[in-house]
């Protein structure tokens, strides 16, 4: 047991040495892994955001939301309300003032809610949410609503959902293709980097074989080296994504594109998952890269 532990310690030490000696080429490996992961991160965020939009929209599937113009009189409110109640297929009608709207938004944002505190004026509009008896009434009700004076916008989501799903699928597919190709590229770059160490240590490897070193002992340090490159690459990209996305999220909020921000995944939720995924992929690429480069070298 103690013997295995010493052998293991030795392998790790050599792995670190290899990485240090090879640091020039290592930068290429680290950058390529970082690049792959960054693109992966952007695609992931895109997909998550679209999923969010679809999800949000879906819950409103049998709802129609209407937004009212500013500055309507009480009579206008009554008129609009009555017109809607008279329509066939309307189950219920709920009024949401713009103040209530803001409260709801704050709850949904959890930790990022403080961003909404600094608003000088409420950018939202008063609205009604209309629950339908059945979706089959939707089309007709929507077209009738558009004719009522004082209603600025009618949101009904079926076609939006369909389009979003389509876009999401394209992004998913395109993302997978790009990421797959880039992963191959970085495995290739890593394997070349490791090959440099292997070649530099060829004599040593040969002697190690004659003295009875196991394949694991010989391979170990190179795999560790690859994994270290992978880990550094992952760390770099995690940091870039973290600060980049936090900055993006904040500046989108500052500029009050509120309708869009609702759908953005808050950074705190996102970064943890991204960190786990990136670390796993970084380590995977690193280990695979060194295994590829070792395959041909160690067959005696």
């Amino acid at each position: 047991m103690a013997m295995r532990l010493r052998v293991f310690k030795n392998i790790i030490k050599q792995g670190f040495q290899g990485m240090w000696r090879n640091r020039g080429m290592g930068i290429a490996s680290v950058s390529s892994i970082s690049a792959v992961l960054l693109i992966l991160g952007v695609v992931l965020i895109l997909i998550l955001t679209i999923n969010n939009i679809v999800l949000e929209t879906k819950t409103k599937f049998d709802e129609i939301q209407i937004y009212l113009e500013d500055g309507l009189s009480n009579a206008d409110y009554d008129r609009i309300e009555n017109r809607i109640r008279d329509m066939e297929g309307v189950l219920s009608l709920v009024f949401i003032s713009k103040e209530q709207g803001l409260e709801i938004m704050k709850e949904g944002w959890e930790e990022e809610a403080y961003l909404l505190e600094g608003l000088e004026e409420n950018p939202l509009q008063d609205s009604y949410i209309i629950q339908l008896l059945d979706i089959k009434y939707a089309e007709e009700i929507v077209s009738n609503l558009r004719n009522i004076e004082g209603i600025e916008d009618v949101k009904y989501y079926q076609d939006v959902i369909d389009k979003l799903m389509l876009v999401a699928n394209y992004i998913r597919f395109g993302g997978i293709v790009i990421i797959g190709a880039l992963m191959l590229v970085s495995i290739f770059i890593i394997s070349n980097t490791i090959k440099v160490t292997v070649t530099a240590r060829r004599r040593e490897i040969n002697i190690m074989k004659y003295v009875g070193a196991t394949n694991g002992y010989i391979r170990g340090p190179f795999i560790i080296e690859g994994i270290l490159f992978g880990l550094i690459g992952a760390a770099v990209s995690i940091l870039i994504i973290k600060f980049g996305y936090e900055y993006f999220f904040k500046s989108v909020n500052d500029k009050l594109y509120l309708l869009f921000t609702v759908y953005l995944v808050p950074p705190t939720l996102l970064i943890k998952d991204i960190a786990i995924i990136f670390t796993a992929i970084g380590v995977g690429i690193g280990a695979l890269g060194s295994l590829v480069s070792l395959k041909r070298f160690l067959n005696v």
């Binding site: 002697i207 003295v211 070193a213």
Partner: peptide, 20 residues
């Protein structure tokens, strides 16, 4: 191994099999 001393060259053979 050119970059190891005489002592290290010999010790190397023991290290790789995990000698104390």
């Amino acid at each position: 191994l050119p970059n190891k001393t005489v002592y290290e060259n010999v010790a190397f053979a023991m290290e790789i099999i995990g000698a104390h």
